[in-house]
Computed example of a mutant assay.
Amino acid sequence: MVEEVLTASVVGSLAFPVALGLQQRFLYAPLRITSDRRIAGPLLGLGSVFLSGCCASLAAIATLKAHRTITKSPNDEKTWLDELPTDWQNLIACGLGSALVFRILTGRYHSVLPSNIAKRGAFARVSIPARRNNAFSPSARERFHKIGKKHGCHTCGRKWRVNKFHRDHQPPTALAREGEKQVYYPQCAKCSAQQGGVVSQRTIQIVTHGTSLRLYHLWMPVPLAWFGLRYLYAKEPVAEHSSSDELTSRLESETIEKSRDEGEEFESGGNKIDINREVVTVNKNKFFEDQTNKAVQETLCDVRDAYESPRERNEIAAEIQSKSDIENLHFIIRIMAVAAVVIVWIFRTD
């Protein structure tokens, strides 16, 4: 079970950034919708994250079901993995959960849209005020380099293989209004070279960044945990065995009815017989002497049948399986929590 969930989580984690990148390349870039739009950017970005979360959840669920179909034998007990829902209500919950996790991991919804190379990019987070004479002290230069290494090029997001970040005026000097304040954002050499021609020609160039991944691009299998917990705790509790009083009353009633059918009359109550740890009260002093052993044998058979009936065995097996599922699910959640902490620690400078 743990292996199946981990495999599905890996598939979902791969599907999430792939879906975001495909939307950038084939939807937003052709429509020239970029991250610098103040209102449309965050709203469309939220929709993109929501849709990608649904796709990742579907991919994870499909992987789980395929794995179960291949590896499950006819004798295996049914678990919550066999009843994962794919209806639109649960997909909406998956999308919203992915959007929430994206935001918790410090993601900004507009950052999943492509960048306009002449505008503030999708990865623009921290800037330094620009000066008229472009003077840059050594301490400011060092700080600017650290900002670039931490957040990457504000246009394409590249940071790992960039040795030097250029100071990009935002807004560009050629497009800035008189008296408008400018700031410096780090920009890689490739984007800086492209920006010069675009600004001078007053054209628009879209830059996609589907391969520039950050911590918030990590898809967490929260939907799987939600489905598992909801399935386990929504199940009706397994019926417990009857109390001694209820069992005694039922067995006495059955014995009385059987004896009356045979034309015998007696009264119950009195002596006690210990049968399979349940105390059954039977008044054998008032049984006819030749029917005493027969009544006891019938009572023994009734108790044995009550505890060894297929229904009881199925209920006990279901209870054991339910407890096993809960333990496995708690173990998976603990692994997810530890993995999240480790990933956050690794990318703590991101």
Rank of each mutant, 00 (worst) to 15 (best):
L215C: 04
I346V: 14
A62Y: 14
N328S: 12
G263D: 06
V280A: 01
V18T: 15
I320P: 06
V18S: 10
R131I: 12
L20G: 09
K164Y: 09
R131P: 04
T106W: 12
N133M: 03
S309H: 07
Q195R: 14
V199S: 00
R120P: 00
R348T: 06
N75E: 12
T299F: 03
D168M: 00
I275K: 00
T79L: 05
S259F: 08
F50M: 05
Y28W: 11
D82I: 15
D274S: 10
H67G: 09
I204N: 00
W226H: 06
T299D: 08
G97Y: 02
V303P: 02
E262Y: 11
A8L: 03
A99M: 07
F266I: 13
A40V: 03
A318V: 00
L22G: 02
D76V: 06
E264V: 15
L224Y: 06
L251Q: 15
R68V: 00
Y28M: 09
C55A: 14
R103T: 15
Q321R: 12
Y185P: 01
K258T: 03
H209L: 09
H154Q: 13
S243G: 15
D168A: 01
E254D: 12
E240W: 01
S111W: 08
P310Y: 03
T255Q: 13
V101M: 13
E312Q: 12
W80P: 02
V238C: 07
V126S: 10
P223R: 03
I70Y: 04
F102P: 05
K258L: 05
F227N: 08
H145E: 10
G12S: 07
E246W: 01
S127C: 07
R311F: 02
H166V: 00
E178C: 01
P186T: 01
E308R: 05
T349H: 07
P237Y: 09
R120G: 02
L46C: 10
E252P: 00
R103K: 11
P74A: 09
E236H: 09
S192P: 02
V183S: 05
R38L: 08
D82G: 11
L43D: 08
A29Y: 04
I204F: 01
L105W: 10
V296P: 00
H217L: 08
S243M: 03
H169G: 00
I117P: 01
L91H: 01
G196C: 02
T255H: 07
Q205D: 09
S127F: 10
K235T: 01
A225Q: 04
D302A: 10
G47D: 05
V162A: 12
I346M: 13
T7E: 13
P223N: 02
A135S: 11
T71V: 11
P17Y: 07
